[in-house]
């Protein structure tokens, strides 16, 4: 009796410590985003001189106004949503089956296959051969290029494989096999429903990757109607560099420099707004994905 009470008070102490640590952590982690929000509605001069710290200074919504005035923004949003949805769907369709099969000991030569995959994590052909390759498939300046490129990330596949290998008991598969299930059925009917947590992780990894991607679009797309959001946002940000570049440019007049400096000041303000504008949609989706992590309970019940 005494030990149990001791244990409970010990647990309470433990709980308290966890809460304190995580609350402090919460504040530390909240601060950068909060700071970005403050900066996005503050006078850029106040930001530059370090006055903005715990609250916005010289409140202005000009940054958001300018960002939303940017007419291409909505085209970008539309494209990004398409690329993210289609791209992530393709990613899952390729990664999950592959990772599952790679986790099975019955797969002969899986170490060799692993090597085949892993080499590509470290060795790549470089910009020019990769570009010529994409061109040879006729994918240049095509929306499908944005969906197909990066169809599988070997890194994510390995992460998923680890999950399958360790979280799904062999007994379940054995039992299913005895019941006459083939591998397709086992994967579709038994494994997938048990893999909500890893699917959630993959959606998060791949989805965010697509959402934030700009390099492929920058290299392979010419038609502005197909540009993703991030590419347009970068165009706004680049304006902050023109003034600095122009300082050493012989063809730039003083008036133009003043104008470029003005643009650069605006871009300084907008760079914070841009983070908010492009991140807010993701912030709404996370809590929904987090629920998948709780669903793991099912495995326990199956095991039992």
């Amino acid at each position: 009796m005494k030990t149990i009470r001791k244990q409970i008070s010990g647990d309470k102490f433990f709980q308290l410590m966890v809460t304190i640590i995580l609350t402090v952590f919460f504040i530390i982690e909240l601060y950068p985003m909060l700071y970005v929000v403050f900066c996005s509605i503050s006078n850029p001069d106040a930001v530059a001189s370090g006055e903005v710290l715990l609250w916005p200074v010289g409140i202005t919504l000009q940054g958001y106004q300018k960002v939303f005035q940017y007419r291409d923004l909505w085209i970008g949003y539309g494209n990004t949503i398409f690329y993210t949805l289609a791209g992530t769907a393709l990613n899952l369709a390729i990664t999950l089956p592959c990772a599952y099969a790679m986790s099975r000991k019955e797969l002969m030569g899986r170490n060799q296959l692993m090597l085949f995959f892993m080499i590509t994590m470290y060795v790549s052909g470089g910009l020019i051969p990769t570009y010529l390759n994409v061109k040879s498939f006729g994918l240049l300046d095509s929306r499908w290029c944005m969906v197909i490129l990066g169809a599988i990330s070997v890194y994510n596949m390995i992460v998923a494989r680890t999950f399958f290998a360790n979280s799904i008991p062999d007994e379940i598969i054995e039992a299913a096999r005895i019941d006459g299930c083939n591998d397709f059925r086992i994967f579709g009917k038994i494994i997938l429903p048990l893999s909500k947590a890893i699917t959630g992780v993959l959606v998060l990894y791949y989805g965010t990757g697509h959402w934030n991607a700009y390099f492929d679009a920058m290299i392979y797309l010419d038609d502005r109607k197909k540009f993703p959001l991030q590419l347009f946002l970068r165009e706004i940000l680049i304006q902050s560099k023109f003034a600095e570049e122009a300082l050493t440019d012989s063809t730039v007049s003083a008036e133009e420099l003043a104008y470029l400096a003005e643009l650069s000041k605006n871009a300084d303000l907008m760079k914070y707004c841009i983070i908010i504008v492009s991140t807010v949609p993701l912030m709404f989706i996370y809590p929904k994905l987090q629920k998948f992590f709780e669903k793991g309970v099912m495995i326990g019940s199956v095991k039992g």
Partner: peptide, 23 residues
């Protein structure tokens, strides 16, 4: 199981190995 791996293998072969001569 090999069928499940196949799409990934094809993608990797076409988009990672084919241009690898660049090394």
């Amino acid at each position: 199981l090999y069928v499940l791996v196949l799409p990934a293998v094809i993608y990797i072969a076409l988009f990672a190995y084919k241009p690898m001569y660049g090394i």
